[in-house]
Design a protein around this nucleic acid. Structure first.
Lengths: 130, 130
DNA sequence: GTAATTGCAAATAATTTGCTGGGTG
DNA sequence: CACCCAGCAAATTATTTGCAATTAC
C-alpha cells in the first residue's frame, strides 16, 4: 500500500511552489510556475506529484467552488472561504473545532477522523468593485 | 439573470426522485431512475435540470469525496459524513452552527452567507466488514 | 543496478453545449 | 403561438494512464 517515494527534482519544485504561495492554485497554475524552473516538466507529472504529495499528507486538495481541484501547501487542517463571485479561495483562521468529530461520532457511531468546513459568500474585493 | 422555469415532466420526475431518496446519488443514478418513468429522457436533460434545480435552491450539489457530483434533495443546509472506504455520503444531524458565519465575518470582513461541513472517516458498514 | 519516475500523447470521465423539433403556459 | 426546453450527439474540461527512456537511491 505504501509506495516508496523518491524526492525528484520535479516533486521538490512542486512542493516548494505550494509552500511559498498564499493562494490556492490549480494544477495548471502550478504547472506554469514549475515550467519556469524545470522547463520540460509535463502536466501529467504535475498531476501525479500533486496526488503523491496529497497522499503523503504534505498538501491538501480542495474540491469546492469550481470545476477543478485546488491545492493548499499548508497541510494542517484549516477552514476556507470561497467567494461566489471571483471563485477565489481564502484561508479562514478561526480555530478548528476538533470536538465536532467526537460529537458526530456520538450521533452516528461512525469512526470520524477529521472534518472540513468551507464558508461561502462575497469577498471584499468583489463587494467593493460592484 | 433569472430565467423563467417551466415545470416539465422531466424536471418534476428528477425532483421527485431526489426528494424520495435518502442516498446522495450521482447524475447517472438519477438518470437510470428517471428512465424507468420517462424512458426517452436524456442524460443531458438530467444534468441541465439538476443545475436548474440547484440554482433554484431546490436541491444541493455536493462535490466531496469523489470524482463526480452528488445531489441531495433536502435543500436546507446540513452537514455530511463521507466514508473514505466506500465513498458513500451520509447526512449528519447535528444542528448547523449559523453563528460561525458571523464569526468568520468578524475575522475576515467578508460577506459570509453560509457554510458547509463534511466529516470524513469510516462508516459502520465498512468498519464491520473489514 | 533496478525500480520508481519522467515526458509525451492518447485515453478516460464527467459535464456542457449546439442544434432542431416539440410541448408548456 | 412564442419561446423555453427536450433529445441527441459532438465538444469541452479536467484528470489519468500506457509506454519507453531516464534518474534517484
Amino acid at each position: 500500500m505504501v509506495k516508496p517515494t523518491r524526492m525528484t527534482k520535479q516533486k521538490k519544485v512542486i512542493l516548494d511552489i505550494l509552500r511559498s504561495t498564499k493562494c490556492h492554485p490549480s494544477a495548471d497554475w502550478v504547472y506554469e510556475q514549475a515550467k519556469k524552473i524545470v522547463p520540460d516538466i509535463s502536466l501529467g507529472t504535475v498531476y501525479r506529484n500533486l496526488n503523491v504529495l496529497r497522499d503523503m499528507g504534505e498538501i491538501l486538495e480542495l474540491n469546492y467552488g469550481s470545476t477543478y481541484a485546488r491545492y493548499d501547501g499548508t497541510p494542517e487542517n484549516h477552514y476556507h472561504f470561497c467567494c461566489e463571485k471571483c471563485y477565489n479561495l481564502y484561508d479562514v483562521t478561526i480555530p478548528v473545532y476538533h470536538g465536532l468529530d467526537k460529537m458526530v461520532h456520538d450521533t452516528t457511531g461512525f469512526d470520524v477522523r477529521y472534518h472540513r468546513m468551507e464558508f461561502y459568500g462575497i469577498c471584499d474585493t468583489c463587494r467593493l468593485s460592484s
